[in-house]
Structures are given as C-alpha cells and as structure tokens.
Design a protein around this nucleic acid. Structure first.
Lengths: 214, 214
DNA sequence: GATTAGTGACTGACCGGTTAGTTATAACGC
DNA sequence: GCGTTATAACTAACCGGTCAGTCACTAATC
C-alpha cells in the first residue's frame, strides 16, 4: 500500500552518460566552461561529482564529449549533403546552402557549443586543438573545395579561399557571440536570419564573376 | 662618497597608474581576463598587489580602464576621420577606410583588447555592458549612418544596416580570435590583411547597386 | 613628526579531482 | 521462487591548491 520512498541511489549505467552530457551542455551554455563547477553539472544530472568522474576523466574531456555530441552530427550532415549535391549544383548554391544552415543552429546545442569554443578556446589549449582538428579543419576542407572549384570553373572571381571562408563564417560567429554576450545590453535586435540573408545576397553575390570580366 | 643604495620602495603616485595599466594589458593579453591573477599584474608592474588596489578598486575596474586606454583613442580617430570625409567621399570608400583600419589594429593593444572582450564578455556582465555602450554603440552609429546614407542616395542596394554591420565586423573579429586561439594548431596561415582585402572587394563591392537595378 | 604611498601576510571562499565506504542489483545455488 | 554472495555504480567527505580582496604595518617624502 504505502508507496516506497524512492531509493536514494539508482544504478543506471546506460542512461548516466547521456544525462550527464545533457546537464553539462546546459550548465556550460549558461556559465561558460571555466566558470561551471563540475558539482553543478552533477547535481543538474541528479548525481554527485564522483559519478561524473566515473564516466569522464576530466572536466576538459567532459567538454570535448559535449562538443562531439553537439557538432559531429551537424558536420556529418553538411559533408553528406555537399558530397551529394556537388555534381549537379553551382558553387554559389552550395555556399548558400551552408550559410543558410547557420540560422537553424542559432538556438540549438550546436550554436551554443560553437559560441563556447570560440569564446573560451584561447585559455584551454587542449580544447582549441581538439576543435581545430575535429571541427574547423573538416568544415574548411568542404568550403575550400567549393570555392576553389568555383574559381577554377570561372563561376567565381579569383578569391583566396582561406580569406573568403573567414568572411563567410565570421558574421555568423560574431552574431552568435553577440546574441549571448552583448545583446542583453543593447536595444538594436539582430537576428541571425537577416545576417545570413545579407551575407548570401551581398557576399556570395559579390563573388560571382560579372559578365565580361577576365 | 658611497652611492646610496636605491630605496627599496619608491613613491611615484603619478607614474603608477600608467605602469599598472601597461602591465595589466600585457598579462590580460597573454592569459585572458579570468585567468590572470592580480598578483601577476602587480609583479609585472614592479609593485605588489596592495598597490594595484590602491589605484583600481577591483579587477573588473582595472580591465575597464585597460579597455578605455586601448580603444578610446582609436574610436575617436575613426569618428573624426569619418566626420571630416563624409561630405566629399562616397559611402563605399568610407566603409573601405574602416575595413582597412582593422589590419592596422591586429598586432596592437586595441586588437588584443577587442579579442579579450569578445571572448570573455559573456562571463562578466559588467564588462559586456560597459563595452556595449562605450564601444559597440559608438562604432555602430558611425557605420549605420554610412550604410543608410549610401542606400538612401542609391549608391548601395537596399540592405539592412545592422546585418551589414555584422558582415563587416564579423570576419575581422573571427580572424582576431583565430590568430590568438586556433592558429597555433593549424597549418593554413590566415592574415588579417587578405581577409580585409577580400571583404572590401567582395562584400563592399557586392553592396554597390549594379547598373539598371531598381 | 605628520602624512600617505606602498607592502605583504592573511583570510575566506572556491573548486577540480580523489577515495574509502555504501548499497542496488545481477548471478548463482538450491 | 528464495536466500546468499559478488560486483560495481554511486556517494560524501575530503584534500591540495588557487586567488580576489583586506588591513596592520613600514618607510619615503614634505
């Protein structure tokens, strides 16, 4: 009859990592990497600190796992889509596709994680190195292929791919940081949507070779 | 006859603030705001922690003073130049002037401070708020006037100024962060110069109204 | 000798990571 | 089914170290 008081501890080896990861994402997003206490992640996940360290060897490794969890599916999807569409689509449309992905990331774990890494990577070499090789390199490879291909085919004016990539990612990255860090103190709202639309029209439009150019 | 041993302590009320500010800039730049110890700033300035707190009430106020010191002269110069040139120069050239200022900031205190604020502003509301009102708002005002003017005069295609501003600052901001945080782990060098050149040619070029457009 | 710039030991709070001990649960024997 | 034992998931208290900020004191200067 009387309902059992729920046991103070439960053994759920399979469910824990996911729950801890989800809790970590939330707390890291709210407070940043350096400022979150592993204790907070633990209590948010309904466990204690010791349990977190049972599944993840260090705070940094926990964060890397969060990065993997949030970004790898997105990167994989982009790589896949570009690989499939590359044959039948002009370079400008491939770039437009990628730029248009950013707004869809804005409110998601992926957006939050990108913001986190950009903001705090500088103080955590291990994380910066991980992110550079596992995320940036992969995205840059895709972008560089599209841009260089477009230039070679005469669709684009001659541009340096590395610089153009910065121009394509920079506005979205800054907007992400803006939303999180500065927007609360400002009155001019800026939405990712319109930034990426402008970028698409003006920058990608500006890359196209005009008629009669050499 | 015998030269006095130099006194172990010197009283130099006038010189201290500048020296502390210079030391703070160096250490903040190297380690970030959160990670620098006030003790390190002090010893770099040849002084002890107590002396730092004699001139600056908190670590955050010290950082705000560093921001003021590094950025206000630059902002003032830009405002001045634009105000003078506005009458006689087309909007595109005014934007080009501003974009071309970025590379000159790259290795300077101004560049370092911008990077610092972008990276760590999120975790320090007071600093983010200060930076938003004292730096961002001022720069945005200048930019918005140029862009809106260019659109109204028919020089530019119709673009939303806030979005265009993100597109103009984003690439430089990301490059700044890149140089500091990720470049060490990568093999593709990216220089501010070429990013800003590309931005000038492609983005500002892309804003110009083509012949025959409505 | 009065004033005050400058010192540095100290405090209180915080936090990543460790570990000895606890207990839910699975496995086994009957 | 039911008791017994072995396993390992989980906890709680702790430790070592760090650091912003304070304050009683020291000495340079007027």
């Amino acid at each position: 009859m009387s309902s059992q008081p729920p046991p103070r501890r439960r053994r759920r080896k399979e469910a824990r990592p996911k729950e801890i990861l989800a809790a970590a994402l939330t707390v890291f997003t709210e407070r940043g990497f350096a400022a979150t206490r592993v204790d907070d992640v633990a209590s948010r996940a309904g466990v204690t600190k010791g349990t977190v360290y049972l599944y993840f060897p260090t705070k940094e490794e926990l964060f890397k796992a969060v990065i993997r969890d949030a970004l790898f599916p997105v990167i994989h999807a982009v790589e896949q889509h570009i690989a499939e569409a590359a044959g039948s689509t002009c370079a400008a449309d491939l770039l437009r596709y990628i730029v248009q992905v950013f707004p869809s990331l804005a409110g998601t774990p992926a957006g939050a994680v990108i913001k986190l890494v950009i903001a705090e990577g500088g103080n955590f070499p291990d994380i910066a190195s991980f992110y550079t090789t596992e995320v940036i390199r992969r995205m840059r490879k895709v972008l560089a292929a599209i841009i260089d291909g477009g230039v070679a085919r005469g669709e684009f004016r001659p541009v340096e791919a590395p610089a153009a990539i910065m121009c394509l990612f920079g506005p979205a990255a800054l907007t992400l940081l803006w939303q999180h860090s500065f927007a609360p103190y400002d009155d001019t709202p800026i939405d990712m949507e319109s930034v990426c639309r402008t970028l698409s029209e003006v920058f990608i439009g500006g890359m196209l070779r005009r008629d009669g150019e050499p």
